[in-house]
Nucleic acid binder design. Structure first.
Lengths: 345, 345
DNA sequence: GCAATAATTTAAAACGTTAAAAATTTTGCA
DNA sequence: TGCAAAATTTTTAACGTTTTAAATTATTGC
């Protein structure tokens, strides 16, 4: 299974013997060490190029203890509609041109820090990216303590600074609620994630700011509720007493499911029940009737997170590796910022 | 950045000196080599466990030449709605319990075999999975020739057998077209991918079988046409002469975009223009009005492909590593088959 | 022209693993 | 008891890289 018997791939030794210099010289030359004469460096580089040399990752990794890999922890519940796809696209875009690779590791056990500890213990990567951050996130605490590079998607309430990228869910919920009120809604409600996640709090705050005491939380469902079940609950609520006449839905699945439920209850989405959703893919631009939607740019999220992580791996302090992404109303995505993105003021 | 100064992670040497045996013995014992006395094997295993030993991937990789990694080539144009997410989920599920990891590599250049050659040359993985297969796929040809393990998503027309998993697009197109005809469509049309992909041919054949000469192909658009642009073209076609009264749409984006275009043209989707779509995520269960939809189970796809790839890496011949997935009408996904799935008859 | 110093290169060790070959201990049997 | 064979263990080399210490060559000052 190893392939045809073509001549073996070139190593440092190949280059060395080609040029009649020592192996160490070649190694240094390729890393552009000024200890090596400029002329030699150029000759080595040329021969390496010509021979098609590429360093062996395993050997380098064994020697240096660094893997050249970053890990994205994949959550079993991450929203179906391309959550990870967009993030992955952003990450790979940020990694492009570097020598880093992206490893995708699903968290089957769902133990909060089991997988993280394994990554650290087995030195599976030089850094890790994860989501579904909690106010007292145990992973953040652990990784900070042992000083292992990471970037979390979402903030914590921990008493120290750590790298993160987060979406401005407070602002989203506020804007979304306002759009409902403007459209005439009197009894708006919001769908929240499982209360253990930090961003649920942000959503609720923003919603409350806009709606005051009129705002309510949809009972019996969370952002993770599967589409069909969610629609069923919404249907029941709509037929029940004092139904909401406006919904803030921070996810695509729930947005679609709600529209279906409203329709199936004999009501008109956007008229009898006003809707404001968060989308990451642009589906709602194609959904009729049109409802108000706000973008979270997950490609940018991935891009920023990977950029931050690389800088953290380089030793940069966490202070500058924080960013809150703002809400977008237009699909038009901002051009990806250079160099890991802007810092938090 | 390497972490707290905790005691260094255990290696084979640690275990060896703990037990007062040699390093080689430990290595063999851990691989359950019958050359080592059973008693010793057990003792070694116990101490390894107790010490929390895990083999160093870099060292093992350097020594054996195998990486313990498989690569999924990510295509820049893969459909937005969770194409890769589902496949990745399936792959990781198949990898669970093995010592293989999944590396995700985007094909930025889009050169047909550039990335593949790089993977092979740099020994980046033990096997590779890719999609968008063409009848004379150059990657399939190359990888087969040098005997590098791979599984393609989609078939070729090459004169040799190779591992693949494919969806039965012929059957999908046939069923979809029939459902349009049953609903009363007289001038059905189908959306096809870029003609260079094998599955476009399968779709067209199936469509033709059902529709005979009545069947037409939507001009000026492909499956890769971006949602907005696609909707615009459909709108124009619907307002033009002799518009189709039924559409077979082999993708979610195009399905949604078509519904929007039909709606915006003042027509009723599912009545004035009948629709039959292929979905992979279940969105269309939540879209109103309901249209007929058929499932392609991409989680299963990923699961099967990874299973096949592992078996191929183990040296199994390609004959048994082929599978055509059948169309599902219900969301209900089949329980994932064991051991890389059924073989082709 | 020669020591002292600077510039450049080389030799050697190490990272943790596997596997082939060699060495040792145990067992079976005359 | 002795000795060949079997069973078990150890020694050693190698994978390709980086980096420290040592060695060599070139340059300078006097």
């Amino acid at each position: 299974m190893t392939g045809k018997d073509v001549r073996p791939r070139p190593t440092l030794r190949t280059i060395a013997s080609h040029l009649g210099v020592s192996l160490g010289t070649v190694s240094r030359a390729l890393s552009d060490d000024p200890l090596i004469a400029r002329e030699t460096r150029e000759k080595v580089r040329a021969t390496a190029e010509q021979l098609g040399y590429t360093p062996d990752r395993a050997a380098r990794s064994l020697r240096t203890g660094r893997t050249g890999t970053i890990i994205l922890v994949l959550n079993p519940h991450d929203e179906v509609l391309g959550f990870s796809t967009s993030i992955i696209r952003g990450i790979t875009r940020a990694l492009h041109g570097t020598s880093y690779h992206l490893l995708v590791l699903p968290d089957f056990e769902g133990q909060r820090d089991g997988l993280i500890r394994k990554i650290v213990r087995n030195r599976l990567a030089d850094g890790v990216i994860f989501s579904r951050t909690e106010p007292q996130d145990i992973r953040v605490r652990y990784l900070t303590e042992i000083r292992f590079p990471f970037v979390s998607h979402g903030r914590t309430e921990l008493p120290f600074v750590h790298p993160f990228v987060d979406f401005d869910n407070h602002e989203f919920a506020r804007c979304a609620a306002l759009s409902l009120l403007e459209a005439g809604a009197r009894r708006p409600a919001i769908l929240l994630p499982d209360p253990r996640f930090t961003f649920g709090g942000h959503l609720l705050e923003g919603f409350r700011v806009a709606t005051g005491t009129a705002g309510r939380v949809l009972p019996g469902v969370t952002l993770d509720t599967e589409g069909g079940a969610f629609a069923a609950v919404i249907g029941k609520i709509l037929r029940g007493p004092d139904p909401p006449d406006g919904l803030v839905l921070p996810g695509e699945i729930s947005g679609l499911a709600a529209m279906a439920a409203i329709h199936d209850a004999g009501l008109r989405p956007g008229q009898d029940v006003h809707l404001a959703v968060k989308q990451t893919s642009g589906v709602f631009d194609m959904i009729r009737p049109r409802i108000s939607s706000f973008y979270e740019d997950l490609v940018e999220t991935g891009y920023l997170m990977a950029g931050f992580l690389l800088r953290r791996i380089e030793g940069e302090e966490p202070e500058k590796l924080r960013h809150v992404q703002s809400v977008r109303v237009e699909r038009q995505m901002a051009p990806l910022p250079q160099n890991g993105g802007p810092a938090l003021p």
